[in-house]
């Protein structure tokens, strides 16, 4: 067999031999397994992935019967970014009736809860009208985005300025203050959209991008919302496979958050009342897609096996074995989707 055409993590084309692909698959799987202290891929799973790359079909799909549900992030901004001048409600109808979306998500173009707070009075009528016209379940989605709560964007002293000066305790206190502000905003926006506008659920997207304090804030907000509204759907999508310890000691229910991998993240999400969890495994742009996919499968499979709630892995630009590019190629996206769903027994993407 000649060379196999695949891609690097940045999307650029690369030709590899089958032996080179197998070597990348095995190396990445071993690396991920050691990092997260979870099982590596079996020989059969390595062969499955190798066959997936040997297959010359441009687009692949899951076996019949293994179809899963899709949830989205920042749905109504996708059309806006393409500068198609239609309203957010029209966009939701387009996704539901034109594109066959399983779920819908209303979102503000400035996709952070802090920014949504300012426009919540304008988002509620959109949601109220959207739920009258659509059939699929609707989330209101946004990001915790803890960074917006520190100087110069917010009221709290910036830990990024204090850490280089050795002000460790002051930095921790700043992160804790930021978390408290974020919790208030997430609970406020979530409550308004659910209780007063009829949303089916709330989506915390790109959670923990600012590290362990942000993960804490999202978990706490989910817990408060779940206690207030036990029937509320709560999705939590992550930003990376590893919780950065920028605070380093913050805990949720007695568990230190810094350094947690997806199989431990999901257990805390369950405790908080989250109903759908989305692990996100980042791409290495200078590694091949087989390397990236094998690595993502190891983390995601361990998460899915540990979970009692549905797992919707993040697959998109720069996560889940999909290249970091604004226009993800179908060959890469469909291979990553098929492999994740079939090897990790996913509930959705």
């Amino acid at each position: 067999m000649g060379k196999i055409l695949t891609r690097m993590g940045d999307g650029s084309r690369v030709e590899m031999t089958a032996a080179e692909i197998q070597q990348d698959l095995e190396a990445a799987a071993q690396d991920a397994a050691e990092r997260a202290n979870v099982p590596s891929l079996t020989d059969d799973e390595i062969k499955y992935l190798l066959d997936l790359y040997k297959c010359k079909d441009r687009v692949v799909g899951v076996e019949e019967g293994k179809e899963c549900c899709l949830t989205y992030d920042n749905m109504t901004s996708k059309i806006k970014r393409a500068h198609i001048p239609i309203s957010k409600i029209q966009q939701l109808l387009l996704f539901e009736r034109g594109l066959g979306a399983d779920t819908l998500e209303l979102a503000h173009i400035d996709y952070s809860f802090k920014q949504c707070k300012h426009v919540v009075q304008y988002e509620k009528p959109n949601m109220e009208q959207a739920v009258l016209q659509t059939i699929a379940p609707i989330f209101y989605g946004s990001m915790p985005n803890l960074g917006l709560y520190s100087v110069p964007d917010g009221p709290v002293a910036n830990p990024g300025d204090m850490l280089p000066l050795g002000k460790i305790e002051e930095s921790k206190e700043a992160f804790e203050q930021m978390a408290e502000y974020a919790i208030k905003d997430m609970v406020y926006v979530g409550s308004e959209l659910y209780e007063k506008a009829g949303a089916d659920g709330i989506n915390f997207d790109t959670t923990a991008a600012a590290g362990d304090a942000e993960f804490y804030a999202a978990l706490k907000a989910a817990e408060i919302l779940h206690d207030k509204y036990p029937d509320m759907g709560i999705e939590m999508g992550m930003s990376g496979e590893f919780i950065l310890g920028l605070h380093s000691e913050i805990e949720y229910n007695g568990v230190r958050l810094a350094g947690l991998y997806p199989q431990d993240q999901v257990k805390l999400a369950e405790q908080a009342g989250v109903t759908i969890f989305g692990p996100a495994i980042n791409i290495g742009t200078n590694e091949s897609l087989p390397w990236n996919l094998a690595r993502s499968i190891v983390f995601t499979k361990a998460c899915s096996e540990a979970a009692e709630i549905p797992i919707h892995a993040n697959l998109g630009m720069g996560v889940g074995g999909v290249p970091l590019t604004l226009t993800p190629p179908l060959d890469a996206l469909s291979r990553a989707s098929k492999a994740h769903v079939e090897l990790c027994r996913l509930d959705g993407l």
């Binding site: 179809e67 899709l70 066959g100 399983d102 059939i135 699929a136 509320m232």
Partner: peptide, 12 residues
């Protein structure tokens, strides 16, 4: 798809 998603979302 919308029906299955409702069970995932609201009943976990």
């Amino acid at each position: 798809g919308d029906l299955v998603a409702r069970l995932q979302l609201n009943r976990g």
